[in-house]
Design a protein around this nucleic acid. Sequence first.
DNA 1: ACGAGCGCCTGTCGGC
DNA 2: TGCCGACAGGCGCTCG
Length: 273
Amino acid sequence: MPELPEVESIRNALRFGRGDDPPVLGNTISRARVLWDRTLADPDVATFEHLLPGQTIQDIGRRGKFLIFHLSNNYLLFHLRMSGDMRVESADSPIAPHHRILIDFTNQMRLAFNDTRKFGRAWLVLDPKEVTGRLGPEPLDPDLTEEDFNRRLVERRRQLKPLLMDQSFLAGLGNIYTDEALHLARLHPLRLASSLSPAEASRLYTSIRSVLEEGIRRQGASIDWVYRGGDFQRFFRAYQRTGLPCPGCGAPIEKITVGQRSTHFCPNCQKLY
DNA sequence: ACGAGCGCCTGTCGGC
DNA sequence: TGCCGACAGGCGCTCG
């Protein structure tokens, strides 16, 4: 579900508002309710609901695919996994299907974590590194240089697709943006990272940044039945384009399975050897 | 270190 | 129309 650009778009909507939705930055929490216990990873429900009221949202950040609320005394983290979403609504509106956690504010608004498939998780902690400590670097971090990335890449003897989706290697890519980055870089998803030439590694570095930046610019992708407002799906080069012409050469896009995930690529532009 | 399989969940879609 | 399997933006676990 949401990958880095979608989480970043949600973060921006919560900070600055979007459409009719007001921002929640600066709001003070009046009440917290957990409607599906397993959504809360830590602490227990009673402690969570007790600690939140009175705290103010001082900032809203992101690390990889984690959304991070900086509160007065704690950090509140969400991982949206496959179907999670954040909704801002009136505090007295009816509880919609699949709402899992509700956070009411003193201004009569409410933040709802809606998650059809129940894979999403929330944490309330003193230090966000308790949750995000094992993540790899941020792909768009200016401090992540091409040299750093290429060095870490070619020392791994692993297929590119699963490596790029490994959050401890790089934080934020999922199935969509991995396929898009590999297509833009003209690299086969099964290529071993250690086999890349310096030029190929550089192409991958540039392509990852390019597709993530475009995703953010288009406010993410809206696919399946989970509409999020973004329209990056209209500009996919490979993802979910099986049989459609490659934007580079016109050959039909192929779909294979890699690491249990559907993988889309152009057999002409992205050769294995 | 790495890949494969599975579990966790609900909903949609296509084929029969 | 109804049923049934495949599949879906993720990740943690076990097992070779």
